[in-house]
């Protein structure tokens, strides 16, 4: 029983670490602010949640009231991250768009985001 639980914990945390690796490489390699935000918003949410679920599962080795409460709190943090992380992404993205950071496009390299707005007829 314990060995299966350990396997689940290792699996969850390792997959979370793998996704975090993708996020980090994405943040370092992607060309502009908006594409980096893609990597940050998605990868950060899922990798944090997976690792947190792994640690919540690890608490079930010795089931008692205290460890169950700790597992509940870890799940609470996971839910918090699930709601808060996309919202923070959204806020940072909005700040970048408002301060007109240059966006990268495949056709003509960096253009200012106000140019994009004109193209779209806003």
């Amino acid at each position: 029983m314990n060995i299966y639980l350990d396997a689940i914990v290792v699996l969850l945390t390792f997959v979370g670490l793998l996704f975090f690796h993708g996020t980090t490489v994405g943040i370092l390699r992607f060309p502009d602010f908006y594409t980096r935000m893609h990597a940050a918003g998605k990868g950060d949410t899922l990798s944090t949640m997976l690792i947190l679920f792994g640690f919540a599962a690890y608490q079930l080795h010795h089931p008692s009231t205290a460890t169950l409460l700790v597992a509940g709190k870890i799940i609470f943090i996971a839910v918090l991250v699930f709601i808060a992380s996309p919202t923070a992404t959204h806020a940072i993205m909005d700040a970048g768009y408002e301060s007109e950071i240059g966006a990268w496009s495949a056709k003509d390299g960096f253009v200012s985001s106000c140019l994009i707005r004109k193209e779209k007829g806003e």
Binding site: G22, T23, G26, H38, K42, G43, L46
Partner: peptide, 13 residues
Amino acid sequence: IITANLYILQLAL
């Protein structure tokens, strides 16, 4: 989200 992360992983690596 899992699909999105696999996509980002593939794109980044």
